[in-house]
């Protein structure tokens, strides 16, 4: 079985103090550390586990700048057989449509049974690439998948629905499946595991190999225009309690009493 897993390289915003970049259309990313999108971590793990179970090969691919080689190497250490990095500086500022298009062009040129992606990315939470990629490849797709089995050339899988419901679905292959977090326990990648794959070549795929040109990527090729990125204004009725712990606690108790909670 040939599996292609698509990865995203995203800034880690969990512990960082975010500020808005000049122009107001993005956050400042210079000081941020980048890492593999957590959802995609489950996708590559699932790809490797499926390979271990049903035999085959796993290819990882990402539309990401040079620095992301580290992420792709980590995927090789996780058990992927080959990795490709799609990049050209003109990709800067691309939306989900452009990324899906580039991935689709890349994938079309090779045989595949299954494409795995994360359902969302932690940075912009667009959730667009999986669906659009499937449409461009002309294959079925599913999102929020929390268990996958393959039999008789079909994917049998479970989806997580709102309200704690599960849904069992069957779909013909090839297909694009976007996974939920928690469908497996991603393995740990040690420094040594990465060093073992240090000499594996990770080819960069440029626009011409995809049959695309600069006008089709970046802001120019994007369908979505970001108007403004901003921090939410302080809401009315919110009070930030200042002072020492004792004073703050006293004030908090006072408010709770006033509102009739205590």
């Amino acid at each position: 079985m040939k599996i292609i897993a698509c990865m995203k390289w995203i800034p880690d915003t969990s512990e960082a103090e975010l500020s808005i970049a000049s122009g107001g259309k993005d956050i400042k990313k210079d000081d941020l550390d980048y890492d593999l999108n957590d959802w995609d971590r489950f996708a590559i793990e699932e790809a490797v586990q499926l390979k271990e179970k049903y035999e085959g090969a796993v290819t990882v691919v990402s539309v990401a700048p040079e620095d992301a080689e580290e992420m792709l190497r980590e995927c090789l250490a996780r058990g992927a057989d080959e990795a490709f990095q799609i990049w050209n500086d003109s990709f800067e500022g691309s939306d989900g449509f452009v990324v899906a298009k580039a991935l689709a062009e890349f994938i079309k040129k090779r045989p595949f049974d299954l494409v795995l992606t994360g359902t969302l990315a932690e940075d912009d939470g667009g959730g667009q690439v999986g669906g659009m990629l499937a449409a461009m490849l002309g294959v079925p797709s599913a999102t929020l998948v929390s268990r996958i089995e393959i039999s008789d050339g079909k994917a049998k899988f479970r989806r997580e629905l709102e309200g704690g419901l599960y849904e069992n679905v069957e779909m013909g292959l090839p297909a694009v499946i976007s996974v939920a977090t928690g469908l497996n326990e991603p393995r740990f990648v040690s420094i040594r595991a990465v060093r073992k794959v240090a000499s594996v070549d990770i080819p960069t795929v440029d626009l011409d190999e995809l049959g695309m040109n600069e006008n089709q990527v970046g802001m120019e090729g994007s369908k979505i225009v970001i108007e403004k990125v901003y921090l939410p204004p302080e809401g009315e009725g919110a009070e930030i309690i200042k002072g020492s712990t004792e004073e703050a606690a006293a004030r908090l108790a006072e408010i709770l009493k006033e509102k009739g909670v205590l």
Partner: peptide
Amino acid sequence: IEQGALPQ
């Protein structure tokens, strides 16, 4: 660790 089996 070599097997990747570190508790989540």
